[in-house]
Simulated scan of single mutants.
Amino acid sequence: MIFAPLLVVPLAALLSAGLILLLKPLLQRYALARPNARSSHRVPTPQGGGIAIIAAALLTVVVLAAPTGSALGGVELPVLALSVIVLAAIGAVDDIRPLPASLRLVIQAGAVAAVVLTAEGRLFPDVPLGLERAVAILAGLWFVNLVNFMDGLDWMTLAEFVPPLAFLFALGLAGRYAPEPTLVAGALLGGLLGFAPFNRPVARLFMGDVGSLPVGLIVAWLLFRLAGEGGLASALILPLYPLADATLTLLWRLRRGDPVWQAHRSHYYQVATVNGFSVPSVVGSVFAVQVALAGLAGATLLWPSPAVTLACLVVAAGLVGWLLRRFTTPRTAST
Rank of each mutant, 00 (worst) to 15 (best):
P201L: 00
V79L: 14
A263P: 04
G73V: 12
G190C: 04
W221Q: 00
L72Y: 09
V286T: 12
S39K: 10
G211A: 11
G191R: 06
T247D: 10
V93I: 15
P164C: 09
L7C: 13
V282W: 01
S281H: 11
G74V: 13
A13R: 01
L301F: 06
A187N: 02
K24H: 15
V93G: 00
P163C: 05
P163Y: 04
L205D: 09
G50N: 13
G152M: 03
A119W: 02
V162H: 01
W303L: 14
I53F: 12
G140S: 05
L21K: 14
V291N: 09
A288C: 12
L105H: 05
G110I: 04
L23E: 15
S285C: 09
S305P: 00
L165E: 10
P5K: 00
G186Q: 02
H264K: 08
L117P: 09
L82D: 03
V210D: 04
G50C: 10
A272V: 13
P306W: 09
G48R: 07
G191A: 08
R97P: 05
Y30G: 01
A185L: 04
P239E: 11
P179N: 08
L59I: 15
L183T: 10
L193D: 09
A297P: 11
A136N: 03
G69D: 14
P259L: 06
E229S: 15
S83R: 08
A111V: 11
W303S: 12
T118Q: 02
S16P: 07
L310K: 07
T335N: 12
S285E: 12
I85F: 08
V184W: 02
V86Q: 11
L213D: 10
A196I: 03
R97H: 14
P100V: 10
P164F: 02
F195T: 11
A174E: 15
A114T: 05
L240N: 11
V289L: 13
L324P: 06
Q47W: 00
F277Q: 01
V84M: 01
Q28L: 13
L188T: 01
G276H: 07
A170E: 05
A111F: 09
M1S: 15
S234E: 11
L77W: 08
L323N: 10
Q28C: 07
S40I: 02
P242K: 11
A31H: 09
V320Y: 04
D154N: 13
A235L: 04
T309I: 15
V274G: 09
G321W: 08
A12H: 12
P181L: 01
V84A: 13
A294M: 07
G18Q: 05
A57F: 04
R204C: 01
L6Y: 10
P330M: 03
L32D: 13
A170S: 12
L222E: 06
L243W: 13
F161M: 06
A81F: 14
M1W: 06
L296Y: 05
L14D: 00
G50I: 01
A134T: 15
A235K: 04
A92P: 00
A71P: 00
